[in-house]
C-alpha cells in the first residue's frame, strides 16, 4: 500500500513514530524498531557525559537506518527549547524538531504560552517544527498558523497509558488542521493507536507503550498493524452509529411455519 505522507519537505511511508528510550537493552530496541516498521525515531538532546565521551551511544546503531527526530524534552521555557533545538540541528544536521515545552514535571503537560513563543521563533529560523501540544483546538490552530509543519496533540499525559481521553477534541482538531496531525503521548495499547487513526490522525508517536511492554518486539508489531488498520478504516469510511438494530440479512423470503 503506497500511502506516503509528508512533514514539510520530509517524506515517510510508515505512520508510526517510535521513541528510542527505556528499552531493556539496545538489541531489544533495535528489534522493536524493526518490527514497528517505523521510518522516523525520536532522540533526546542531553549534556554529554565527559567521562564516557568515547562512546557515540545510540546514534551509530540507528542513524544510518532511520530518519532522526530530535526532541526538546525536559525544556520548561521557550529559551531552553530554542537553544536545545539549535544544538540538535547542529548535532544531527536536520531541520526536524519535536518541540516540547512542558509546564511541570508531575503532569509533563505543555505550557501553551512558552510553546507558542518557541514555535514562532523556530519556524522563523527555518526549523521544521512538529509541536507537541495539549488537545486544545485553539492552541492547535495557533500552532498551525505560526507555521508548524505538524501538530501533535496528546491523548493523555506522557507515559500514562491512558489513551485518548478526549476523542471529541481530536475530531474538532482534525477539522481545523491542514498540516499533519499526530497523536503524541498517552498511548497505552494498540487500540488507542487505531482509534487515533480512525479519528483522522496522520500518524501516531509513542515510546513507553512499546518499550515498557513485557514483550516490546511483538508489541511493536502489534502497533504497526494497529496504525495500518486505523488508517485503512479512516480511508474506507465507517458506517453511522444507530440506536436500533438494522438487519443484515434480506427481509424478503423469510421462512414462516403455519401456526
Amino acid at each position: 500500500m503506497d500511502d506516503r505522507w509528508k512533514v514539510g519537505p520530509y517524506e515517510f511511508s510508515s505512520r508510526l513514530l517510535v521513541g528510542t528510550a527505556k528499552y531493556p537493552n539496545y538489541q531489544v530496541m533495535l528489534d522493536a524498531l524493526e518490527a514497528s516498521g517505523t521510518d522516523l525515531v525520536t532522540v533526546a538532546i542531553r549534556r554529554l557525559d565527559i567521562d564516557a565521551s568515547s562512546e557515540s551511544g545510540v546514534l551509530e546503531l540507528i542513524s544510518d537506518r532511520y530518519e532522526l527526530l530530535p526532541n526538546t524534552a525536559g525544556c520548561y521555557t521557550a529559551k531552553d527549547a530554542i537553544l536545545t533545538a539549535n544544538l540538535a540541528r547542529e548535532a544531527l544536521e536536520t531541520n526536524l524538531i519535536k518541540l516540547e515545552v512542558i509546564a511541570d514535571d508531575e503532569t509533563l503537560l505543555p505550557d501553551g504560552e512558552e510553546l507558542l513563543k518557541a514555535a514562532g521563533a523556530l519556524v522563523d529560523d527555518g526549523f521544521v517544527v512538529m509541536a507537541y501540544t495539549n488537545d486544545d483546538p485553539v492552541l492547535c490552530r495557533k500552532l498551525q498558523d505560526l507555521g508548524c509543519a505538524a501538530v501533535m496533540p496528546l491523548g493523555s499525559p506522557i507515559g500514562s497509558g491512558m489513551g485518548i481521553r478526549n476523542p471529541y477534541n481530536f475530531r474538532i482538531i482534525r477539522e481545523i488542521l491542514e498540516v499533519p496531525m499526530l497523536l503524541d503521548a498517552g498511548v497505552g495499547t494498540p487500540s488507542d493507536a487505531t482509534l487515533a487513526m480512525e479519528l483522522g490522525c496522520d500518524g501516531v508517536l509513542l515510546n513507553t507503550a512499546i518499550s515498557g511492554a513485557e514483550k516490546p518486539v511483538t508489541m511493536a508489531r502489534a502497533f504497526k498493524l494497529a496504525v495500518e488498520a486505523g488508517r485503512l478504516a479512516y480511508q474506507s469510511g465507517r458506517i453511522p452509529k444507530r440506536l436500533y438494530a438494522q438487519a443484515s440479512s434480506p427481509l424478503e423470503g423469510v421462512v414462516h411455519s403455519e401456526s
Binding site: 528510542t20 533526546a44 551511544g57 545510540v58 524534552a73 536545545t84 544544538l87 548535532a91 509513542l206 513507553t208
Partner: peptide, 26 residues
C-alpha cells in the same frame, strides 16, 4: 558554535560551555 568554526572560536575565562550529544529519547 558550528563544528566548522570550532578551530577559530575562542573560549574565555568565565564562559558557559554546553556540550551535548543526541541520546535515547521519546
Amino acid at each position: 558554535v558550528p563544528r566548522r568554526k570550532w578551530g577559530e572560536s575562542p573560549v574565555n575565562d568565565g564562559d558557559r560551555v554546553e556540550i551535548i550529544r543526541a541520546t535515547q529519547g521519546g
